[in-house]
Nucleic acid binder design. Structure first.
Lengths: 154, 154
DNA sequence: GGATCCGGTCTCGAATCGGAACCACTTGGT
DNA sequence: ACCAAGTGGTTCCGATTCGAGACCGGATCC
C-alpha cells in the first residue's frame, strides 16, 4: 500500500497527514507563519532543494493551503497562507509545546508571546462541554456523522 | 542539505519534525493511541511495509517515544507509549481538528468524546496569562532562554 | 549590451520506499 | 515426533523520491 492511499481512510488524522505529514511540508508552513513568502526566501530559510520546494508549494496550493499571487508592487509571485492554511497554526504550536518539553535541553529557543501581554501561547486539549483539561486517557472515540451513513451500504 | 540536518536548528518546531514529521510516523503513533501494540497489528492497521514499519518503530524507541517490552503473559514484545509518547496526543488532536474542519465533507468520521461526559475533546491555542484564545496573528516570537546563551559565542 | 537576480525545469546519482522472499522461533494439532 | 500456521524480523530488488547542480527565460540594473 502506498502512503497516499491513506487519504481514502475515513479518519481526520490520516487524511491531513497525507498532505502535511511528509518531510518538509510542516517546516515550510512554519516559515509561512514567520512571513516567508517568496520562492528563494523559502529556499534559504529551509535549505530545501529547488525541486522539492516546488513539489511542496504546488501541493499546498493545490489543496488550498497556500495561494500564489502577484502583489501589485512586485514582478514576482508570493505564496501566502489562506484561511485553511492559517488554521494549521495550532498544529505547529502543539508540536512546539512538545518540542519545548522534550527536545529543548537549554530551555525554549523561542518564546511565542501574546501580543501586548506578558503571557505565552500554549495549546491545551479540553472538553468543549465541561471545560476540563484532557489527556489521551480521558478520550473515548465514538462513531461520527461522517461514518454513520456509510455503515449499512456494503 | 539533508532533512535530518534540521535537528541542529534551535527551533522547537523543526526538531520534533525530524523525528515525527515524515511519512508514517504520526500515523503509527495515532494507532498507538487506539491500543495497537504489536508488530503485525500495526501492519494490518496501517498497510505499511515490514521494513518501513521496523525503521519507524526503531526510531521511536530510540527517541524514547515508544518502549519495547515483553508482557508477562505473552511470548512477544509490545511497543507501548512512554510519557513522552503520550504527550504527542495534542499534536494528533490538533491535526484532527483541522481535518474535521477542512477534509471531512460528510462531517467528522469519529467523535473524540470526553469519558463520562457529553462533550468532545478539542485543541485550543490560548494565552497562559490572560487566558484569551489566540490565533497566529496574536503571537509575537521572542528570544528564549535556549538561544540567549548562544548569541555572543561566535 | 552585459551582469545579476529571480523563479522554475531538467538531469543524475543517492537515498528511501513497497513488496516479496526468506528465516528463526513459538504454538497447536495429530 | 512431526507438520502447519502464526509471529517478528531481515534481506533483497525494482520503483519512487530526494538533493545538488546545470540550465533556462524573464526582469532589473548599470
Amino acid at each position: 500500500m502506498r502512503y497516499e492511499d491513506l487519504a481514502d481512510e475515513p479518519c481526520s488524522i490520516t487524511r491531513p497527514l497525507v498532505v502535511l505529514g511528509d518531510r518538509w511540508t510542516l517546516v515550510l508552513l512554519k516559515h509561512c507563519f514567520s512571513g516567508v513568502r517568496r520562492f528563494n526566501a523559502f529556499r534559504t530559510a529551509m535549505g530545501i532543494s529547488r525541486s522539492r520546494l516546488q513539489d511542496r508549494l504546488d501541493r499546498l496550493v493545490e489543496h488550498g493551503i497556500l495561494v500564489r499571487q502577484r502583489p501589485e508592487d512586485s514582478t514576482y509571485d508570493e505564496y501566502r497562507l489562506t484561511d485553511k492554511g492559517l488554521a494549521v497554526y495550532p498544529i505547529l504550536m502543539a508540536i512546539r509545546d512538545w518540542g519545548d518539553a522534550y527536545m529543548a535541553p537549554d530551555g525554549p529557543p523561542v518564546r511565542y508571546r501574546h501580543r501586548d501581554c506578558t503571557g505565552e501561547a500554549h495549546v491545551t486539549l479540553a472538553c468543549d462541554a465541561c471545560g476540563d483539561t484532557m489527556t489521551a486517557r480521558d478520550v473515548t472515540p465514538e462513531l461520527g456523522p461522517g461514518l454513520e451513513g456509510k455503515l449499512g451500504q456494503d
